[in-house]
Amino acid sequence: AKPPKTVTVKVEVTNADGETQTRTVTLTNLPKDLKPGDTVTLPETGQTARIVEITP
């Protein structure tokens, strides 16, 4: 079996106070056609994050 493909992405997350924070997260099994501006759900927090940058 192939190991899951991990991708490092820079995302913007809005916290409970309405502040936008930029975080770098490593995600696995992202859709192939994901692009900056799309939103993903962070598995560890369940927060919705907007992708700023994808590092191949």
Score class of each variant (00 low, 15 high):
Pro43Trp: 10
Thr41Arg: 09
Val13Ser: 03
Leu34Ala: 14
Pro36Trp: 04
Arg50Gln: 05
Gly18Arg: 02
Lys2His: 14
Thr26Ala: 04
Ala1Cys: 11
Pro3Glu: 10
Thr55Leu: 15
Ala16Leu: 08
Val25Ser: 01
Gly46Arg: 04
Val7Asp: 03
Thr48Pro: 10
Ala16Asn: 08
Val40Thr: 02
Arg23Gln: 07
Val7Ser: 05
Lys35Val: 06
Thr41His: 08
Val25Lys: 01
Thr8Ser: 08
Leu42Ser: 01
Asn29Pro: 03
Thr28Leu: 09
Lys2Leu: 13
Pro43Glu: 07
Ala16Lys: 10
Gln21Lys: 08
Lys2Cys: 11
Ala1Pro: 12
Thr14Trp: 12
Val40Met: 10
Pro3Thr: 06
Val9Asn: 00
Val13Phe: 15
Leu30Trp: 15
Pro43Ala: 07
Glu12Arg: 08
Thr28Ala: 11
Ala49Val: 11
Pro3Met: 04
Glu19Lys: 13
Lys32Thr: 12
Asn15Gln: 06
Val40Tyr: 11
Lys32Leu: 13
Glu12Trp: 12
Thr45Lys: 03
Pro43Asp: 07
Gln47Cys: 05
Asp38Leu: 03
Leu42Cys: 07
Gln47Arg: 04
Gln47Phe: 08
Thr22Phe: 15
Asp17Thr: 08
Pro31Met: 13
Thr28Gly: 08
Gln47Pro: 01
Asp17Ile: 08
Gly46Tyr: 03
Pro31Glu: 14
Leu42Trp: 04
Thr39Cys: 08
Asp33Glu: 12
Gly46Cys: 05
Pro56Met: 14
Leu30Pro: 15
Glu53Asp: 06
Ala16His: 09
Pro4Ser: 13
Val25Met: 10
Asn29Val: 06
Gln21Ala: 09
Lys2Phe: 13
Val52Trp: 02
Pro56Asp: 14
Thr55Val: 15
Lys32His: 14
Glu53Gln: 09
Lys2Pro: 12
Pro56Tyr: 15
Asn15Gly: 12
Asp17Val: 09
Asp38Arg: 02
Val25Tyr: 11
Leu34Asp: 00
Pro31Lys: 12
Ile54Trp: 04
Thr20Asp: 02
Asp17Cys: 09
Thr45Gln: 03
Thr48His: 07
Glu53Asn: 05
Lys32Asn: 12
Thr45Gly: 06
Gln21Pro: 01
Val52Tyr: 02
Pro56Leu: 14
Val13Gln: 02
Pro43Leu: 07
Arg23Phe: 15
Arg50Asn: 03
Gly37Thr: 01
Thr8Glu: 06
Pro3Asp: 11
Asp38Gly: 03
Thr41Glu: 07
Asp33Tyr: 09
Pro36Ala: 08
Gln47Tyr: 05
Thr26Glu: 09
Val7Asn: 04
Lys35Gly: 05
Val40Gln: 00
Leu27Arg: 01
Pro56Gly: 12
Leu42Glu: 02
Thr48Ser: 10
Leu42His: 02
Pro43Phe: 07
Glu19Val: 14
Val11Glu: 00
Thr39His: 10
Thr26Gly: 03
Thr28Trp: 08
Arg50Ala: 02
Glu53Pro: 01
Lys32Tyr: 14
Glu12Val: 12
Thr20Tyr: 07
Leu34Met: 08
Pro4Ala: 13
Asn15Glu: 06
Ala16Ile: 09
Ile54Lys: 01
Glu19Phe: 14
Val9Phe: 06
Val40Ser: 00
Thr45Val: 04
Glu44Val: 09
Ile54Val: 08
Leu27Asn: 01
Ile51Phe: 04
Thr41Gly: 03
Val7Thr: 09
Glu44Thr: 09
Asp17Met: 11
Leu27Val: 04
Pro31His: 13
Thr45Asp: 07
Asn15Ala: 08
Gly46Leu: 05
Thr22Ala: 05
Asp17Ser: 11
Pro31Phe: 14
Asn29His: 11
Thr41Val: 14
Thr14Arg: 09
Ala49Lys: 00
Pro36Met: 07
Asp17Gly: 06
Asp17Arg: 11
Thr28Asp: 07
Thr28Gln: 09
Thr28Ile: 11
Glu12His: 07
Asn15Lys: 05
Ile54Phe: 08
Gly18Lys: 02
Ala16Val: 09
Thr20Met: 10
Pro36Tyr: 05
Asp17Ala: 12
Val52Arg: 03
Thr20Pro: 05
Thr48Leu: 14
Asp38Trp: 03
Thr41Trp: 15
Thr24Ile: 15
Ala16Tyr: 07
Thr41Asp: 04
Asn15Val: 06
Ala16Arg: 08
Val52Glu: 01
Thr28Cys: 14
Thr39Val: 12
Asp33Leu: 09
Lys32Ser: 14
Val9Thr: 01
Thr45Ser: 09
Lys35Leu: 06
Gln47Trp: 05
Lys10Phe: 07
Pro31Val: 11
Ile51Leu: 04
Glu19Arg: 12
Arg23Lys: 11
Pro31Gln: 13
Leu42Arg: 00
Val11Ser: 00
Gly37Ile: 00
Glu12Tyr: 09
Glu44His: 10
Val25Asn: 01
Val9Trp: 02
Thr22Gln: 10
